[in-house]
Structures are given as structure tokens and as C-alpha cells.
Nucleic acid binder design. Sequence first.
DNA 1: ATGGCCATGTAACGTGTTACATGATTTC
DNA 2: GAAATCATGTAACACGTTACATGGCCAT
Lengths: 182, 182
Amino acid sequence: MSLPHAILTALLEQPGSGAELARRFDKSFGFFWPATHQQIYRELAKLERNGLVHSTGRDSSRGRAKDYNVLAAGRKELSRWTLEQQEPRPVREELMIRLRASSVLGDVPINDELERHLGLHRTQLAAYQQLDQRGSWDDANRLQRAVLQAGIMFEQTWIEWAEHTLALQPAAETDRATSTPR
Amino acid sequence: MSLPHAILTALLEQPGSGAELARRFDKSFGFFWPATHQQIYRELAKLERNGLVHSTGRDSSRGRAKDYNVLAAGRKELSRWTLEQQEPRPVREELMIRLRASSVLGDVPINDELERHLGLHRTQLAAYQQLDQRGSWDDANRLQRAVLQAGIMFEQTWIEWAEHTLALQPAAETDRATSTPR
DNA sequence: ATGGCCATGTAACGTGTTACATGATTTC
DNA sequence: GAAATCATGTAACACGTTACATGGCCAT
């Protein structure tokens, strides 16, 4: 049940329309909780039904932007949820399954995919680092920075692990056989 | 679409019944792809309908253990999937949302939850390290070990980040106000 | 033979994903 | 004023979660 609370948090940081929220989720807020515009519209409607947010849409027509802001009940619910004891989400890493599959199958080289993911994570790390450098950090938003630093540290760990795993692979011949010699 | 492939991998490592699989998922295989017994039964039935696994259940009654093993078509499908290009799963970390919520709300101390999660991750790290030390590692299962090492590295990063984040919090008074003086 | 446990299974629901649809606004 | 784009929305499905149900097995 995190998406509604993520939306409440984003709306408290800055009120806006559903589409604006979707853009913010894409470019920064959603790094730790991605959401599509369909999910966001669905949840916004539900939050409004439950009296946690209020929209200042002029009418209820389709193509008009609605501006949402958080009501007192929404702020209260967010406080409650934030302090609640919650268990960590289970990790789900497809690549780990594929490594074990490659291991048990024996003849399925996976170095290309490892390399590709390594590249993706290097790109993500660079994006986080840029956000961190360009941000103006003070005591008030230290927790926001901590979140960004978590992103940086996890990407660095991913990169370190992938490089290590690629290095220990004696499977160079197998991979070469499946890629173009050039 | 990873759960069926995770099950195929687990069955290749060692054939077994649905309940045995569920136990293996709980205690090691599922560290990177947890699954409940309901999910596993559902997927096993589907895999059998599609001709990827075969069960040697004597009859189709309820309370009797069925032994599953992987058919050639199942092995082929697993090879195909393992080599496929796949994008990394989006990260979903509730605690990060809660940190940002705490930041924007201003008066909601979250150190207690940070400490609690820190403890959980220390426990998980210890479990991974024990598995790593007790395992007998050679060239054939080096990828399985790499998976375990990913778990170790990510837990270590989590711990390092949480300690750092707790250290930078000047919110000691706020926390003390909400906990029992004792 | 009964009570407890184990293995399998059903049902309902919540959330995430994908494809598509429709009304407004802008642009030329 | 037609086309492109933007904002909102609907529908159907996949997957994960939770609660519960049923049949077999074992111990006493």
C-alpha cells in the first residue's frame, strides 16, 4: 500500500495535476517507487473518494488538468503510515535467477547480459550523481539527500559486483563462440 | 514472467514436490525470488499443462505428494529465457518513500524504523555469510556463489547506508520525546 | 478412530502492466 | 479548422497476497 502514500508525499512537496505527478515520478520521485500515469490517475481518484486529497478541476470533463492538493486527513494518514512498522519488501532480481539457471544448464553463457546490465547501472549511477551534485543540500532536506545517496551506493555495489562476477568467469570461449568475431 | 523459470531452475537443481519446492524457496532459493506455496502450485499446474514439466503423482488426488521433474521442452524454454535481453526490475523501496514523507512532514521521526530495519539487514547478512562459509565452492557452482555474494554485498551496503543516515540525524530530541523515558 | 499435521488446492482481492479511447488545447 | 499533442480515463490481464478448504498420513 505504498503508492497512495508516495503520491501524498509528492503532492505535499508540490501540488499538481496527475500528468505533472507522472512526469515527476519518471524523472526523480519514482526512482524508488515507479508508477505509470494509469496507476497515478487510479490512485488519485481513490484518494479523492476517501477525502484525503482535493482537486480544483473546474469541471469533471476529460481533457482538463485537475490540480490536486492534500487535505488535513491526507496529511494525518501519511504521518500514521510513515511511523508504522513495516517489513522490508522482498527482493526480486531476475538476473540472479538467470545466473543460477545458467549454472545448472551449464551451456548458456550469460556474460553478454551481465555486461549490458553493467552499462545500464553505470548510466543510472551517473544520473544519480548528477542529481546529487546539482542539488542544494541543507539540513531541511538531508533525508531527501539520504535517499539519493542510497541510490548511488546501491548502483556502485551493483557495478562492483558485476565487474567481479565477469572477472571470475572462465567462459570466454563460450561467449566468443556466440558473438560475431568482428 | 520469472516465477515459472525460477521453478524450472530449482527443479533442475533437484526434482521434488510442490511442498519441497516451497521449503527450498523459503530457505535459500527464494532469497532473490520469494514465492508462497500457492504461487508455486499454481505455476506447477500451468507448467505441466504446457508440457514443460511432468509429475509422477500416482493419482490426481489432493493430499498426495507429486514429484515433478523438467522435460526437454522445459529445459529448452529455460535456456531461451536465460539468454533473452531483459530490463532490470524497477526498484521499490517503501522506506525511501517514508524518508521523503518524514522530510516533507517535518515532525515525524523515523529513526526507530531505520534502526529496526538496520537490525533486520544485519540478521540477513549473517545468514548469507553463514551460507557462504558453509558452502563448498568450486568452478562448477561459481555462479551460484556469485548470487550469494550479491546478497552479501547488498546487505552490507544497506547497513552502511543506514548507519550513515542515522548518524546525520539531529533528530535525537524528537525521537526521545516519542519513546518511553525508562 | 481421532486429532494433528502435511500436501495440495480454491477463491477473492490488491496492485502493476499494457493497450487503447476520448475530450481539451495548441499549432500551423 | 485540421493535425498533433496533452490530460484524463477505461478495460483486460498478469502477478502476488491472504484466507481458507479438502484429502491423505501419522501418532497415540
